[in-house]
Lab assay of single mutants.
Amino acid sequence: MSGNGNAAATAEENSPKMRVIRVGTRKSQLARIQTDSVVATLKASYPGLQFEIIAMSTTGDKILDTALSKIGEKSLFTKELEHALEKNEVDLVVHSLKDLPTVLPPGFTIGAICKRENPHDAVVFHPKFVGKTLETLPEKSVVGTSSLRRAAQLQRKFPHLEFRSIRGNLNTRLRKLDEQQEFSAIILATAGLQRMGWHNRVGQILHPEECMYAVGQGALGVEVRAKDQDILDLVGVLHDPETLLRCIAERAFLRHLEGGCSVPVAVHTAMKDGQLYLTGGVWSLDGSDSIQETMQATIHVPAQHEDGPEDDPQLVGITARNIPRGPQLAAQNLGISLANLLLSKGAKNILDVARQLNDAH
């Protein structure tokens, strides 16, 4: 009898209710805020589980004197976190989706994509230029951005401005803007500013005609071990179906173009009346040469937790077992079709030249 009692006690200790789920994140304040929001949602869904947040620095956090596009290494903000995932030191990792490459290392998958916040870019102005827009900034004003995508589009749109690289986390960039006289304004992701509670610093939100956004911008991705079915089931509740389908289309477009950090590629997606609209573009580094096109596809946005595919093969690095396969494939095909259209119009040449120029500098 006593033996059975011990077995029952052991089973209770090993039951999922007692389990601590370890969540990996970057150390920056924004990353911690984003991770806290994901953990809060998981806690609400699984009140019996405990969650421990483990923060670590990544290569991208450490190399702050070089433009991201020049470092010449993929997975700048993800490699150390993936290493911890691989060694079973954490069970899942919360990322900004735009930091996750469209091809993940073997053994990993994006197990959830959370509801997207505003994906557009924002302009934050130096205190002396508050009330201005990019259009009304004085001639030769210097605007800071760490992104080739932003610089290429904005140089084309605002030729009277000069664009220079600015690195560091959000706090560091804002301090550089406010305390030094080098920059009249800087460009940042609206979602990051909003998550930090800095709505009052948003001086201008850039519309798609001015600057399309990065693939996955404004959404959070939760990376897990691809074979860890328990954790895949656990994080599945975080999937937002519309965000998922938009981001599958965007990531398929980028992957098929073979774009990345070192080339200016941008997108804009919208879901309306059962249609998914995808606009994508590529630019030369100075913005003088560009190709942009829009395509659409009829896609039914499923309700969360309709029964999805059981075999769960990944699409552009994403596993969404609780979302039907048909809409996911339709979104992926839309991204591939748009990429093929741009490639047929000469996108590869623009991107190759951009890559060579970026590598040469």
Rank of each mutant, 00 (worst) to 15 (best):
S57K: 00
D286T: 08
A40D: 11
R201I: 15
D286R: 12
D289N: 07
L104C: 09
R225T: 07
T78M: 04
T66N: 10
P106M: 06
A331L: 03
R355V: 13
D61F: 03
W283V: 00
L104S: 10
N118D: 15
S45M: 07
L285V: 10
L193M: 14
E210P: 02
V123E: 01
L134D: 03
D61C: 03
S146N: 14
Q204R: 09
V90D: 01
I187N: 06
M212K: 03
Y46F: 12
G111M: 01
P241R: 02
V103G: 12
H256D: 03
E310I: 03
G280K: 09
T172N: 12
S290K: 07
A320C: 07
F129Y: 12
G260V: 07
P101R: 00
V39E: 07
P302N: 00
G236W: 00
E310N: 00
R321N: 06
Y213V: 02
V237W: 02
P313C: 06
V237S: 11
H199I: 12
L334W: 07
R150Q: 01
L49T: 13
L341P: 04
N88I: 11
M212V: 04
F163S: 08
D65V: 09
I63E: 01
Q204G: 07
I166S: 07
Q296D: 03
S165K: 05
T59W: 04
M271W: 05
N349K: 12
D230F: 02
F183I: 14
R246F: 04
T145C: 05
S37T: 14
V38R: 03
R173N: 03
R201G: 09
A331E: 03
S146M: 06
V39T: 08
L341W: 08
A112H: 02
A55C: 08
E293L: 06
H126W: 05
V94G: 04
L68Y: 11
N200T: 14
E162M: 12
D99L: 02
V202R: 09
V93E: 00
Q180N: 15
F77A: 04
A84S: 09
G72M: 09
K140F: 10
D312G: 10
T269E: 01
L276H: 01
E179T: 10
L134A: 08
K74V: 04
N200C: 12
E82G: 04
P101L: 06
S37H: 12
G218R: 02
K62E: 08
A214K: 03
Q296I: 07
G216T: 02
T279F: 09
H268F: 13
S69D: 09
H239T: 14
G216D: 05
R156S: 13
A297E: 05
G107K: 07
T59D: 14
V353G: 07
A219F: 00
E80V: 07
M271A: 03
W198S: 10
V103P: 10
G221C: 12
H126N: 10
V103W: 15
S75F: 00
A122N: 12
V267L: 10
A320P: 02
A84P: 06
I318L: 05
R225I: 04
S288C: 10
R173I: 01
L315Q: 04
L232S: 05
Q217F: 03
A226G: 12
D61P: 03
L68G: 06
V235F: 01
V265S: 02
Q328E: 13
S96H: 05
D121K: 01
Q296G: 12
R167L: 09
H83E: 13
E82N: 10
L193S: 08
E306L: 13
L278T: 06
A191G: 06
V103D: 09
Q328V: 05
L188Q: 06
N349E: 10
A330D: 09
V353C: 03
I318W: 01
N118C: 14
D352E: 04
